[in-house]
Simulated assay, not measured.
Amino acid sequence: MTTAHTTLTDLLTSGAPELADVELFPDGRYQLAGTTARTVDAAVVATLRIGFAGRPADDFPLLTVGWGRCRVGSTAVTNLFGIAGIPAYYQPVKTVARHVLSNGVGSPWHLPEGESALFAKEMAGPYVSYECLFNPVRCLIEAGWPADRLRLLVLDREPEASLDSWMAKWEDRIGRARVLENFALSTANYLAMRRFAASAGVAVTHFPYEASKQPEVTVARLFERLGVGDRYHPGLLTGWGAAGDLNSEHALVRYPVEPEAYVVPGLHGNEQGYRFQQRVTDRLTEQERALAAEPAIRDRYLESVAACCAELGIGAELRSELFGR
């Protein structure tokens, strides 16, 4: 890891306030100028405020923010909420940040009228440091979204499988070394996000990808915990048809317009339902597998597993079937 990434990881893990003012250097493709997290956050908040302006606090819908490291099954989760009839958005906060990083201006998020619940995925990584360490929940609160109308859904995945997927999608875009650095920095953000949610009074639920091995049990409990239990029925889990093509207009995910550099054709899968898919991790070297097994990374995943089991009432037998531990 480079000194710059080690410093960012240490500051993020420790919760040091000076992290907001560390210079984040451009890469010339995904970030066009030097900046700081504080500067980008301020621009994102200003844009979000435009979309939220004039809305009374008691008129904000209940928003579940699905957050975690990229490549943890988040788009399929987003589509699942869309199929349940909950307007489901693809990174409305992070996309504003990507426009800022590209020296542009993002579009405000104008909320649909008459909806009691929304879902938005907002993932950490993969391209530049800001994406790895940013906090979408804090941006939403600072822009006016009431904390008691937010739920943080922490998404996760067995680290070796997640890292292999990062390599498959982004090695050719940012190089192998940066994939490893940004994967580690995004993982460090789990500590920071949990810490912030606790301080802000935002309710937290954990749902690692492996919980989708038995979605007929776990998804029902998930929806109930998130306050949208009335939207769940077993038919949500299968028979997606054309809506299962997560790259297409048929998916029930509301995609924003991203800067051209960030558009990745074929990034998402084609699913016929919500179900776990085993990954063969054949892209990783032994050194990279060792990175995924380091306590600083592995322990974050184990914390997600333990929290999920406690929150969803998953007993020892089911826990063993889902997580093998």
Rank of each mutant, 00 (worst) to 15 (best):
M1W: 12
T9M: 09
D10P: 01
A16P: 05
A16N: 10
D21F: 07
L24G: 01
F25T: 11
F25A: 13
P26V: 02
T35L: 02
A37T: 11
V40F: 08
A42M: 15
V45N: 01
R49H: 03
F52M: 05
G54C: 13
G54R: 14
A57L: 09
A57P: 00
L62F: 06
T64G: 04
G68H: 15
R69W: 05
T78W: 02
L80G: 00
I86W: 00
Y90N: 08
Q91L: 13
R98T: 12
H110V: 13
E115V: 15
G125C: 06
F134T: 08
N135H: 13
N135A: 07
R138F: 05
R138T: 08
R138G: 08
E142A: 11
G144M: 08
A147D: 05
L150H: 05
R151S: 01
V154D: 14
L163Y: 04
L163K: 08
S165Q: 10
E171Q: 13
V179M: 03
E181L: 06
S186I: 07
S186N: 13
Y190Q: 11
L191D: 14
R194A: 07
A200G: 02
A200P: 01
A203M: 13
T205S: 07
Q214K: 03
L222Y: 03
E224L: 13
V228C: 08
H233C: 12
L236G: 12
W240P: 07
A243K: 02
P265Y: 09
G273T: 11
F276L: 13
Q278F: 14
T285L: 15
E288C: 00
R289A: 10
L291S: 00
A293V: 06
E294K: 12
E294D: 07
P295D: 00
I297H: 10
Y301Q: 11
L302H: 12
E303D: 12
E317I: 10
S320H: 11
S320F: 13
